[in-house]
Design a binder for these strands. Structure first.
Lengths: 355, 355
DNA sequence: CTGTTAGCGCGTTCAT
DNA sequence: ATGAACGCGCTAACAG
């Protein structure tokens, strides 16, 4: 063995990222000055500022996120925790958040709780440990605890789903009214036995949409029939199983209000497999528009939600809460919009789908 | 000895997260010992170790991510940069990555380049600035530069799309073979003029799939007709416009191979709007399966990709590269699978879709 | 206006 | 086996 030249690894010179110190030295100033220039804090003479900026650029200097987060106690990062990243509803909302966040100079990292409360709790811990400066969350349950976040002063905005007993701002859709509108529409097309497939009881959206459905029945003087209602998991498989179950049990609805887009896809598959004609035999209205909603035959009637706007508003609320931590909690309710397509066409009307 | 215990402000108002120092003090040991226990480094007597763990739990101690990243120069975080978060293909791949990453004790943060090279470059800088321990990227262009990452020793794995001249491992699908198979299938069903809608030239997937299409034509002894080929942007709107353009120009293909799922959706919309019957007048095969592919009328034939597996393999490669930085670059090619549904049914065959 | 100093919370030598 | 001391890169205080 050679006598060890105890130098550092001689690999292709890892150009260890330029320090703030490197920049300071190269510019002939102190690191504090560099910091002041780059953060616009304090006051620095124009010439020196220009020189610093110049050097920083040449050295391709980028401040270290961790170091900065460690010092300032907040990272310029928002954490967005969604319940189902494979649901286009959430990805679209995220786009809305992201676009707005960028305007505030913040980056967005996305976490997927997969409707799992443990996993969600983990990600909340991570957000805490990383000192992120804000959290947007579509909670996996109404009972999701945000106190750890709130007590440590991290601004939180809940989206899509309410969280119980928590003083956080939220951005929601008027689920009850929209669901009622969808159900009323089905009744108006001459259906007598409108069924409902909604989500699990720990999600407020599921409950509110069910409420809207029940309210519309009551308003029409139709007694609610428990045999026509199913709860599933807000996923395609759940919608599929619910339909099979509904018809297998002989409940025989002549219309279905399905409380989210994923389950609507599943429900349509099941109806197809059962050779039940939509809308001739069963009318369908879903909740959430989807990219494929106009590609199906028949095209699906839905309650469309303003997804991007929902995300944007959440970002605005978060930015406000960040600027003024004492700002009061707000609740933003956006309106859904019933889009009538083919799947809810009146039974009698010729839909010309067989042409 | 214990003189000079710096008393920290005891504000119950904001329970500042417990320090390593807090844990050390509460356990009657030094912070070094706590660190050793929690990281399994060094040696600590069993009793003290147990005590430390106990106290850490009681205090709900979680080490600070930034502080740790600052000290160790690597965070236990992987960055995944995808080109289009609204494409179910990518979200599914991400799920695969995420599941595998969790097994390695790593968290995954997701970034969306939106097919934009500038935005992508930004996120690469962020990954660098945050000292993430690995990056998985579906590059926005073949010319995307990963040298900044590589030269600083950050393990990188490319997915779905190749990146030129870069020594990075990658996980891909056999685009050429799969596209050839899809095209051959269309030819076998009696089509004479098979067209192709592929993606932009800066994406290797787009080019490879086009190659596969051309290869299948050549193998069948059919001369390629440039008038039957269009390049679009891998998005629904692009697919829609391409079809309108194709038929508006009088190219009149009797079949279409569409090189990604988003464009397939757009293409089907356009065909519907043009009142062109699928598959009677035009046969269609898409690339990438999609949740809605069996909901359309007709159901869409596609080349399905093993999305979860693709993500899982990328995670494995990344974990390997992390364990052994000197490990050789690998290229994993997964197979696509042609799924024949209704949209490519033989022209003559009664498809009974009009029933 | 600018430089110097002192940590943020952690992991890691060095001594013991 | 354990603790004291140092420094990662940065910014907030304090001098000048």
């Amino acid at each position: 063995m050679l006598a060890g030249v105890t130098s550092r690894p001689q690999q292709p010179r890892s150009p260890a990222a330029a320090n703030i110190t490197d920049v300071a030295r190269a510019a002939g100033v102190s690191s504090a000055t560099v910091s002041r220039v780059l953060n616009g804090s304090g006051t620095v003479s124009p010439e020196r500022a220009a020189r610093v900026r110049q050097v920083a650029q040449e050295l391709r200097y980028h401040p270290s996120g961790p170091a900065r987060a460690l010092r300032t106690r907040v990272a310029d990062v928002w954490t967005v925790i969604v319940a189902d990243i494979e649901n286009p509803f959430f990805t679209s909302v995220v786009r809305g958040i992201e676009d707005a966040a960028r305007e505030h100079g913040c980056r967005v990292v996305l976490c997927n709780s997969d409707e799992d409360q443990d996993r969600e709790a983990e990600y909340i811990e991570v957000a805490l440990a990383e000192n992120v400066s804000g959290v947007v969350i579509a909670a996996a349950s109404e009972r999701t605890s945000l106190t750890a976040l709130i007590s440590r002063g991290v601004p939180v905005v809940a989206i899509d789903r309410r969280v119980a007993n928590q003083q956080v701002s939220c951005v929601l859709v008027d689920n009850r009214a929209s669901a009622g509108q969808a159900t009323a529409h089905l009744l108006e097309t001459g259906r007598q036995r409108v069924g409902c497939i909604t989500g699990p009881p720990q999600l407020t959206t599921a409950n509110e949409r069910l409420d809207g459905y029940l309210g519309a029945l009551a308003a029409a003087g139709i007694p609610a029939d428990p045999a026509l209602v199913r709860r599933a998991d807000f996923r395609p498989g759940g919608g599929y199983a619910a339909v099979r179950d509904l018809f297998g049990a002989g409940a025989a609805p002549d219309a279905l209000f399905v409380a989210n887009n994923q389950m609507t896809a599943g429900a349509l598959s099941a109806l197809r497999d059962l050779r039940i004609d939509v809308p001739a035999q069963v009318g369908v209205v879903g909740f959430d528009d989807a990219p494929w909603a106009t590609l199906t035959r028949p095209q699906v009637s839905v309650v469309a939600q303003p997804t991007r706007e929902l995300g944007r508003r959440a970002a605005i609320l978060l930015a406000e809460a960040r600027r003024d931590p004492a700002a009061p909690r707000q609740e933003v309710i956006l309106r859904g919009q019933l889009i009538i397509r083919e799947s809810s066409a009146p039974r009698g009307a010729g839909t010309s789908l067989a042409s």
